[in-house]
Design a protein around this nucleic acid. Structure first.
Length: 514
DNA sequence: CTAGGGTTAG
């Protein structure tokens, strides 16, 4: 062929993109430009999607500029693919700007934007956009529903989740394997592993992702036994486990203290199922052994590893040092950890807490100084609570809520009752260098406590109080929740950055093993 | 002739 028309070009460029040979795709595109071919709205989305897949923001922007020059930037397909590209490259503002300027938005573009918001910035905005889409008369299809289900999972908002579920039931879409799996994940991450299981049981078709999602759900809800029970069921239904299935199983074992079981899975994953352990599996094992205080075995395992060690692995060991107050080891582990990832404030906070727990105030101060020197700040803690499908967000000492004064009155009342019952605030968890009285004040108004106080006011007694936190729950708030669950006779379901805590009758589902 | 979807560690 000597003369190529725009369609032939797009077929060639697209062909390379389809088989993920992006360098050939890009060089064909460059040749097209060199030949003086006009840019068209068939080829451009293909190349823009290639930038998306490679997360090549730089070239993506170059193409965006080029499309503006030839007046194609408002073409529907070009624009939609640019929004998607910006979203995947995590420049959500650029994606949103473009989206807002689009003269015509169809279902696919809405879906891209809803998904992008859920992933990058706020899941709240994502759900708001989904509502707006429906107001504008766009009817969601299955893919759009999966996306909004994913946003609900991210957000952990149970009432929203139920509303979406009702909506899906109303549409009479069948629960296909992807939608069903997304809904399992949604209910589990909204705090109800039982509702997740109901969906699971309803599904006709299940694949390895479905089974893994269910196993993982039991794991992070602290129900290791149920997670393990699913494994033989999965095998007998003819599904083979993959890497993620084993991460989920091992994680479930470590969070339920099932040490022998975990060791057996770890040994069998390669021998019996041909799944080679990677660093994440080792991390689960270090976590499992470390939590049990079996440091020699954990260190031996790390030494025997042939795969590359990462910050998660050292982080798991450091976490174990905190539980068992292994100060000596913590120092060594932290230096490996901070060498690998000096920019993560969480590591400094953890180390500082370890020192604080041991009363090593000087070391604690040094850690904090080091953190400041690196230009890092502790990530502020936030807690969300959902009331009637509306989300309320609290930060420490927050007074922005319209019913703030009521909330503080409730908190004071509860605190007095708790102290009578023997609750002592543990100020070790306050990182700030302030005196004891101020520390107590800060601790007193931790975001999760404010959210719980609000929940006690507005949520009926027979309904669990569900809250979500962006960080790990602090030890004092964990104790506080246990006391509230017995004294106020309330179930509290707390989702923190790592797992769920179900507080009931003075105890927690994590068995204080977090 | 074009597009958007689900699971995992600390």
């Amino acid at each position: 062929m000597t003369e190529r028309d725009p369609y032939s070009w797009s077929v060639i460029v697209g062909g390379y993109a389809k088989v993920k040979d992006f360098s050939s795709c890009f060089s064909m595109f460059r040749e097209l430009v060199r030949c003086g071919m006009p840019l068209d709205n068939y080829t451009l989305p293909i190349v823009i999607r290639a930038c998306r897949d490679l997360k090549d923001l730089q070239f993506g922007r170059v193409i965006h500029c080029a499309t503006s020059k030839c007046g194609l930037d408002f073409d529907h397909f070009v624009c939609a693919s640019l929004v998607d590209m910006y979203a995947r490259c995590k420049v959500i503002e650029d994606a949103r700007q473009l989206f807002d300027k689009m003269p015509r938005r169809d279902l696919v573009t809405w879906t891209v934007m809803v998904g992008a918001l859920a992933e990058c910035s706020s899941a709240v905005e994502s759900l708001t956009l989904f509502d707006r889409m429906r107001v504008e008369g766009i009817v969601p299809d299955k893919v759009a529903l999966v996306t909004v289900v994913y946003a609900c999972a991210k957000l952990g908002a149970m009432n929203k989740a139920r509303a979406i579920h009702d909506y899906i039931n109303g549409t009479r879409f069948c629960l296909d394997v992807i939608l069903g799996t997304a809904m399992i994940d949604m209910y589990a991450k909204c705090g109800s592993v039982d509702l997740a299981r109901e969906i699971f049981d309803q599904m006709q078709m299940k694949n390895v992702i479905t089974w893994s999602a269910m196993i993982a759900a039991y794991g992070y809800h602290g129900q290791g036994g149920k997670a393990l029970k699913l494994f033989p069921m999965m095998l007998s239904s003819g599904i083979l486990p993959n890497r993620i299935t084993f991460v989920s199983l091992l994680y479930a074992c470590s969070h339920a203290g099932l040490i022998e079981e975990g060791q057996r899975f770890f040994a069998s994953m390669w021998d019996e199922y041909g799944v080679r352990p990677d660093v994440k599996h080792y991390t689960c094992m270090v976590d499992l052994l470390g939590r049990a205080g079996r440091f020699d075995e954990a260190l031996g395992l790390i030494e025997s590893m042939t795969v590359e060690k990462d910050e998660g692995l050292w982080g798991a060991l450091l976490g174990a040092c905190r539980i068992h107050r292994r100060l000596d080891l913590a120092k060594r582990v932290a230096s490996s950890l901070l060498e690998l990832q000096p920019q993560n404030p969480g590591h400094y906070v953890l180390l500082s807490n370890i020192y604080a727990n041991a009363g090593k105030w000087e070391d604690m101060a040094k850690t904090r100084d080091l953190m400041t020197k690196c230009g890092l700040k502790k990530i502020p803690g936030w807690t969300w609570i959902e009331v009637d499908e509306k989300l309320y967000q609290f930060s420490v000492g927050d007074k922005t809520h319209p019913r703030s004064s009521e909330i503080y009155v409730m908190l004071k009342r509860v605190d007095e009752k708790l102290e009578l019952a023997g609750y002592v605030p543990d100020t070790n968890y306050v990182l700030h260098d302030v005196d004891e009285e101020v520390k107590q004040g800060l601790l007193y108004a931790h975001s999760e406590k404010l959210a719980i106080a609000f929940g006690l006011i507005v949520i009926p007694g027979d309904t669990p109080i569900r809250i979500t936190k962006n960080l790990r729950v602090c030890g004092d708030c964990h104790t506080f929740c246990k006391f509230v669950s017995s004294i106020e006779r309330r179930t509290i379901i707390l989702r923190d950055a790592n797992r769920f805590h179900h507080f009931k009758e003075g105890g927690c589902s994590c068995r204080d093993y977090w």
